[in-house]
Write a protein that binds this DNA or RNA. Structure first.
Lengths: 244, 244
DNA sequence: TGAATATTTGGACGATAGTACAAATATGGT
DNA sequence: ACCATATTTGTACTATCGTCCAAATATTCA
């Protein structure tokens, strides 16, 4: 780990946060997830992970062979549950009658699992999404393939669902706006302090629920915006007209 | 550099892309900017930079003392011109009469310099913004201070200007939406291929101008959305009413 | 229990990291 | 041309990297 706020004297508490079973494999996995999602893949060494998990560096190699293998296993653990939950919520959202409510439900179905996805660890979804954000920024080659073949299907399903609710907007624009949504989501999880710093001393800003609501509200409005080939002015942006 | 697509047989052309003067300091700076913004700070070694610039590793130490110092100098080079250009465009945007047009001009004043900021190198703005995106994801400590004391002023100025155009929306919501804008902007520059992959084989997707227009359109709509403490339905989202 | 297996340990390997420094070379003013 | 200075070079230092491996230990099951 290149540089990190002084913490060499604190005990490794990542293991304690887990289920406390003497399952080293799980402890290593949890520690790696926490460290990767905080400092990035390149900045964290295998020895850092081992120490945080209370394990020997050799154990990491034993269980996961390589550092890349460790990262791969983390993704395998989360991608399944997260996409499954997204599919469930998306299916439920599709059944919403009111067009406005349906669009909002679709967006929520995409955002929610990123914060609360199914891991036995507390705050698991947030941590994994933060990890994905960092990995996409670092351009990690190992991850790029998993993303392409795991998340693109999900993304297509959501774009399709949105396109059904907003048929008058070209797919290209919806793809862009979905792209912006993902960027906003990532950035929100990567820099949790920035919002509270720009706001004038309001709440602590770490309220995930509030962040989700703000993100959903903004995204729904962005999706409903008139496409680029239409003039912005007049009543074009009014959902009342746009969704008729 | 940890892992990178095979390129060891190609000559270092970063220097050739610069002004070709035998100014090693500039060549090193350009090479570092290119490599950092592509692979991240931790993944690039001083030796990588030196080789790409056609210089000796010792020269890097001579000119910039440390690796952090090199990163710092890159920021010093760009922050000034970029924020100056933003201030100019913001001042011009404030003078726009029509409230709708003014809001769009303000957003454009924020986004444009991120793509075209003043560097003598071609495509300079895009590269530096990509660098900022990666740095914010990696949580680099050296950069965090610069960001806080350099960009927060600019951010406040823009939030204020937006608040003047949308006085009925609480500042907190506008801060969130500006935050989302920055995240969308970063993510767009970090993953330039993703949009074209999700679109169905349309244009090449690397058209910066189109990306800007999509981003501005979506952001303006998001900013105009009714705040969280108001119901979303009815005519609340209509700009015609909202801006009255 | 005892043997087979699974896991953990501690140390080692070569590679590469950031940085330092003396010697070599280029540069510019007089 | 000469000297003072600026820059480049080559090398070396220590630290840490990912990975490997044999020995020690823990676990499992007949």
């Amino acid at each position: 780990m290149v540089r990190k706020p002084a913490k060499s004297h604190v005990k490794p508490d990542v293991k304690a946060a887990s289920t406390r079973k003497p399952n080293m494999r799980e402890a290593i996995l949890a520690a790696a997830e926490e460290l990767f999602s905080t400092y990035g893949f390149n900045a964290v060494s295998v020895r850092d992970i081992a120490q945080a998990a209370g394990a020997n560096p050799g154990s990491v190699t034993y269980h996961f062979k390589t550092k890349d293998g460790l990262l791969l296993e983390i993704y395998r653990r989360h991608c399944g549950p997260m996409n499954r939950r997204r599919s469930e919520l998306l299916a439920a959202a599709r059944r919403v009658r009111d067009l406005q409510d349906r669009l909002e439900a679709i967006v929520r179905a995409y955002v929610l699992p990123a914060f609360t996805s199914g891991s036995d660890l507390a705050g698991g979804g947030t941590r994994f999404t933060r990890l994905r954000a960092i990995m996409s920024a670092e351009g990690n080659e190992v991850v790029r393939k998993i993303i392409a073949q795991t998340f693109d299907d999900t993304s297509h399903a959501f774009i399709d669902a949105i396109h059904e609710s907003l048929p008058h907007i070209p797919r290209t624009d919806l793809v862009w706006r979905g792209h912006f949504l993902l960027g906003a989501l990532y950035y929100t999880l990567v820099t949790p302090e920035r919002v509270s710093r720009l706001s004038r001393g309001s709440a602590d800003g770490t309220d995930a629920g509030h962040a989700i609501e703000e993100l959903v509200r903004a995204t729904v409005a962005a999706l409903q915006a008139p496409p680029l080939d239409q003039p912005r002015k007049a009543a074009g942006a009014s959902p009342g007209r746009a969704l008729t």
